[in-house]
Design a protein around this nucleic acid. Structure first.
Length: 566
DNA sequence: GACTCAATAT
DNA sequence: CATATTGAGT
């Protein structure tokens, strides 16, 4: 058995790598088909001889998930033997023959589909659906060996627990969702490969009515799993947040235990009207047609446009709006995204993109962003006011909430300065529902103090964010160093230099009178700093000179135009 | 359609 | 009361 369960458990890009047995006596057409299939990233095993194929199956030298058998006019019954011998294997017949009787014969013998040539790519691409179908619909116990792992894999993909087919109302609530397996499956099928919504489904038995595309994510799903693209974060991300439900059906999305994958169930489902008896006997695994007639609660938010596929049976499509729980992990992603984008590029859609959290909607993000900003607003001005006294005389009312300060592109040469000397914006510490009370978010006012593993200060130039993503002003910018500095000559010198920097930079930016004003004020308050009263900044040379006398030889490159042109 | 802000709901 | 969702305005 080459195909172990574990191997398949982490099946990425599901249909890819599906092993297809191709039986075709005609070597030419076989190789053509093979290359086409391989292009679709199926793994193809070609057999020209039926017996060989069969023995390959029985010998289990290789595990196949699907078979495609060519039926030619020459051997109309050729495939039948294969069909009957390889019942476990979902088999698709392919033929140029347009004969109903032949087709019927094949189907009757167990073929899952009879495709007529010429085969479109779409048809070919979608063959995987039969594997899924078979895996989930063979009555539970008859899933063939080769399909079992597929099923497991899919279940894990769907974040479902395997459905016990012989449920005897055992009280093990471990997986309470066993109650309603197929509904869930169907609902979750949006997570199936993209083919789902991009390509027409096969013509034959389709049970995937529930399939809908992920589309713009405007609908909410009940699971949000953190697609973890981050470097292996081990910081308890695996915590699955409660997915409690109002009353009855509490579907706790248990995480697939596949090692690398962690997810956060986030939302909660709400059944307004407990579908009382609905799940009573319903447990019957819904083997065939998913007649999972659910509660008829149709509460707006249909967004039925999402479904590119016919969702024939009723439109109920249980879409309850779920409440997103912004867990620390989720928030972290959010902040990371915001940080990456830069504070003023951070718009919901982009953030959403960067977060890569399934099920999360723009609305959610927008809302969170709103809170985020408001939080910032409360805090920013305080520390900010000191550095940027009254931004603009008047019209600042409807200004951007984020005063355009030069927060960008500050070189990091001030490492000799005290603790990064950033601004200390209080972090928005969410209600500490954190395990063992650990404040992994760090001290509210000193972001840098949070445990190292918790946060990576991305080297985004000049735009560091604390947990709430508050940008930190560039090091040693401004005149109020967070920590009192030793009045050493060195610092003095640096102070001078900084002040000049302020001037220059500000002038470069926009001749903000306030800034000048401020510098003047400072000059007055600190007479030991020789700032010319005429406000004429000393030449760079003289500054350099002064610095070098203080033993400072390396000076930052002059920064010009590195600020946003706002 | 997307963003922001305000109102409302939980 | 804090936080998330919904709604309205731009």
């Amino acid at each position: 058995m080459v195909c172990t369960e574990n191997e398949l458990l982490g099946w990425k890009d599901f249909p890819k790598g599906l092993k297809v047995l191709l039986l075709d006596k005609d070597c030419n057409s076989a190789s053509e088909m093979r290359s086409r299939l391989e292009q679709m990233e199926y793994i193809v095993y070609v057999f020209c001889d039926e017996n060989e194929a069969l023995s390959a199956i029985s010998s289990k030298s290789e595990v196949f998930h699907l078979a495609i058998v060519e039926v030619t006019a020459g051997n109309r019954d050729g495939g039948l033997k294969f069909l009957t011998s390889a019942r476990d294997l979902p088999t698709i017949m392919v033929s140029g023959i347009h004969s109903i009787s032949t087709m019927m014969k094949c189907i009757a013998h167990g073929a899952v589909e009879f495709l007529q040539k010429p085969l479109s790519d779409d048809k070919l691409r979608n063959i995987w659906q039969h594997v899924v179908h078979k895996a989930f619909n063979s009555g539970g116990k008859n899933v063939s060996e080769s399909l079992k792992p597929v099923k497991e894999s899919l279940l894990s993909m769907l974040e479902l627990q395997p459905v016990k087919s012989e449920v005897k109302n055992e009280a093990d609530n471990e997986n309470s969702n066993g109650a309603e397996p197929l509904t869930s499956v169907v609902e979750n099928q949006k997570e199936l490969p993209p083919y789902c919504d991009k390509y027409p489904a096969p013509s034959t038995p389709q049970q995937k009515q529930g399939v809908r595309s992920v589309d713009d994510g405007d609908f909410q799903d009940h699971t949000i799993l953190s697609t973890e693209q981050d470097s292996g974060v081990n910081e308890g991300d695996t915590k699955s947040v409660e997915t409690t439900c109002c009353d009855s059906v509490a579907e706790t999305t248990v995480l697939a235990d596949s090692p690398g994958r962690l997810g956060e169930a986030i939302t909660k489902e709400e059944h307004d009207f407990a579908a009382d008896q609905k799940m009573e006997d319903h447990i019957a695994t819904c083997s065939r047609s998913n007649d999972c007639t659910g509660n008829g609660s149709t509460r707006s938010a249909d967004s039925s446009k999402a479904s590119g596929l016919h969702s024939s049976s009723g439109t109920k499509a249980n879409k309850k709006k779920m409440k997103v729980d912004w867990t620390p992990e989720l928030h972290k992603k959010f902040v990371k995204a915001v940080e990456q984008l830069g504070i003023d590029q951070a718009i919901p859609s982009r953030i959403l993109e960067l977060m890569k959290v399934e099920g999360l909607t723009r609305h959610n993000v927008a809302s969170h962003l709103q809170k985020f900003r408001m939080q910032r607003r409360q805090i920013l001005p305080k520390e900010d006011e000191k550095r940027w006294p009254r931004p603009q005389p008047r019209d600042s009312v409807q200004r951007s909430y984020y005063p355009h300060k030069p927060v960008m592109a500050f070189p990091t040469y001030h490492s000799n300065h005290a603790p990064a000397s950033g601004q200390f914006y209080p972090a928005w510490v969410p209600p500490g529902n954190y395990p063992n009370g650990a404040r992994i978010w760090g001290s509210p006012y000193y972001p840098g103090w949070r445990p190292s593993e918790t946060w990576h200060w991305t080297p985004h130039p000049g735009l560091c964010a604390d947990v709430w993503g508050c940008p930190v002003t560039p090091p040693s910018f401004g005149s109020c160093p967070p920590y009192p500095q030793n009045a050493s000559g060195l610092h003095k010198a640096v102070g001078i230099q900084n002040r000049y920097s302020i001037l220059e930079k500000s002038l470069d930016l926009q001749p903000a009178e306030e800034v000048i004003d401020k510098v003047v004020k400072e000059a007055i308050n600190k007479p030991w700093l020789p700032l010319p009263l005429g406000l004429k900044p000393p030449s760079t040379e003289s500054v350099l000179d002064a610095l070098s006398k203080q033993g400072i030889s390396t000076v930052p490159p002059r920064i010009t135009g590195s600020f946003r042109p706002h």
